[in-house]
């Protein structure tokens, strides 16, 4: 079995929140990361991105402890959903109570959805994930997502 993303593998840094965004290419991972980094917070916010899990082993020593995992999927592409489903297999149980969420990008264009929304909902329910639907290109949506993710308590 490949390496599972472990919670508290290292001592967390004080006053720092480290976020990992998992989403395949084209799902808007970088846009989301930039969006999060625009927010002014009381703590240091660091954002890491990954296209798939498990993470490669060679960078493991320099990798910090991740406090929060964001799963990002693009609902207009079936592949994105599959990759997210795959990635969920490699995450520690500890992340699934309040330390992760699922962001559904492309939700504002229902005519281009590749799969039914109920499948996404099922997936989120199965892993106790909170869903945030949005259109990341949309400025207003982006601001809402940013605020919700960086607020003191989600």
């Amino acid at each position: 079995m490949a390496e599972i993303l472990k919670y508290l593998a290292k001592l967390p840094t004080p006053l720092t929140a480290v976020t990992l965004i998992v989403g395949d290419e084209g799902a808007g991972t970088l846009e989301l990361a930039n969006l999060l980094l625009q927010q002014i917070t009381d703590y240091h916010l660091r954002v890491h991105t990954a296209t798939r899990l498990p993470l490669p082993e060679d960078g493991a020593a320099s990798r910090p402890n991740f406090d929060f995992v964001i799963f990002l999927l693009d609902i207009t592409r079936m592949e994105s959903f599959k990759q997210t489903e795959e990635a969920l297999q490699y995450v520690d149980v500890a992340y699934f109570h309040g330390r992760s969420c699922l962001i559904v990008n492309g939700a504002k264009k229902p005519d281009r959805w590749a799969n039914d929304y109920s499948i996404v909902e099922e997936l989120a329910n199965a892993y106790n994930l909170q869903i945030i639907c949005c259109q990341l290109e949309d400025e207003e949506d982006g601001a809402v997502v940013r605020r919700r993710l960086t607020a003191p308590a989600i």
Partner: peptide, 22 residues
Amino acid sequence: CRAAGSRDSDPLVGIYQEQDAW
């Protein structure tokens, strides 16, 4: 550490157990 999503069992059970313990 345990992966939540083993295909044969419901991941929710594991998650809730873990949450309980925490």
